[in-house]
């Protein structure tokens, strides 16, 4: 495969890898940066299921919550190191994706109904863990306090988490490129464009949709595992429908199927949002999200192909200038 296709990933890697040094390892900025990178990862993973395969998935909150719970429970109950716990959490989340996804695709649940049933899954799991008091219940279950031991993975300085999320983001981006230019990628795009036509041409629609869902839920499960180490507790409210909705918003505003556009949009918009939060949010609660909603509506109505088009034209102009 053409090595050049991986090049833009470096453009992500270098400035982000320098970020902790630029802010001289300030914990607040590291915390914010880690959350933003985690979101960018989820958006990049979401691109596989929605951008490529065209299934509007709103289950990110459920999959992230699952990763949070499995990693947290393994550490708290059986004292299993998160190094293993995160991976097990990702696998368990993919298993959940399979259990839900198999019948969903088998019975041909599509479009708005797929979106709604995946959003319903978030609420179901949230309430299930709320009612199931032996495991979670309404109390916050706290992980061991910061000790700096590698076994517990609870560090006072957040730079480890930042680099873990960054590594996951880079892997997800590489995986995106790899899938996009492989046979699977073309099958998924065919499914997105026209499911019946793809099936007629011999694409196993159910199998590839399920595969996309498994990859996506696995990665989102991993982000949940990193999240619980930063948050330091788990609680049913971490099955958060807002994660699902925000992921979809960022993915759509960024541009469907845009491998770099969507995560880049996530980095920019969430950065601005965080800035607005401590400037405007202190004046009027919720104002920063009002701005956000207006941007979303305007982009979809007037720039339906997403912000990635804007980035692409800037990139092309930059290349043209350099050629002169």
């Amino acid at each position: 495969m053409d090595k050049k296709k991986f090049l833009p990933t470096l453009a992500f890697l270098i400035p982000l890898a320098l970020y902790p040094i630029l802010i001289s390892f300030n914990n607040y900025f590291l915390n914010v940066g880690t959350f933003i990178v985690i979101y960018a990862t989820i958006v990049a993973a979401w691109n596989i299921i929605c951008g490529f395969a065209g299934q509007l998935d709103l289950g990110a909150g459920a999959y992230m919550g699952m990763g949070i719970f499995i990693t947290g429970i393994l550490l708290l109950w059986w004292n299993i190191t998160p190094l293993i716990g995160i991976i097990v959490g990702g696998l368990a989340t993919a298993a959940l994706g399979f259990v839900i996804g198999y019948p969903t695709f088998r019975f041909g649940v599509r479009e708005v109904w797929y979106a709604l049933s995946s959003l319903a899954l978030v609420s179901i799991l949230q309430k299930l863990f709320l009612v199931w008091e032996q495991v979670a219940g309404p109390v916050e279950r706290r992980l061991p306090y910061f000790s700096g031991e590698w076994y517990l993975m609870r560090f006072y300085n957040f730079s480890v988490y930042f680099y873990m999320s960054l590594a996951l983001l880079i892997i997800t981006l590489l995986l995106n490129v790899k899938i996009r230019y492989s046979k699977i990628g073309y099958y998924l795009l065919a499914i997105r464009e026209n499911e019946e036509a793809a099936e007629m041409l011999g694409v196993d629609v159910r199998k590839y949709k399920l595969l996309a869902l498994l990859i996506y839920s696995f990665i989102v499960g991993l982000t949940g595992g990193i999240f619980v180490l930063i948050a330091g507790y788990y609680h049913p409210s971490l099955f958060d429908p807002w994660v699902s909705i925000q992921t979809a918003i960022l993915g759509i505003v960024g541009g469907l199927g845009a491998i770099y556009g969507a995560p880049l949009t996530a980095l920019i918009i969430l950065g601005i949002q965080e800035y607005l939060r401590f400037t405007l949010g202190g004046i009027v609660q919720g104002l920063h999200l009002i701005v956000y909603a207006v941007i979303l509506i305007l982009v979809v109505l007037f720039k339906p192909e997403g912000l990635s088009e804007v980035f692409r034209s800037i990139y092309k102009k930059a290349v043209a200038l350099k050629a002169k």
């Binding site: 918003i249 009002i290 909603a293």
Partner: peptide
């Protein structure tokens, strides 16, 4: 997808207007 995106935008808008 555009309809869902626009109405999700309205949803976030209404939620945060009432919050404000």
């Amino acid at each position: 997808l555009s309809q869902i995106a626009v109405t999700v935008g309205l949803m976030v808008l209404l939620r945060n207007v009432t919050l404000a």
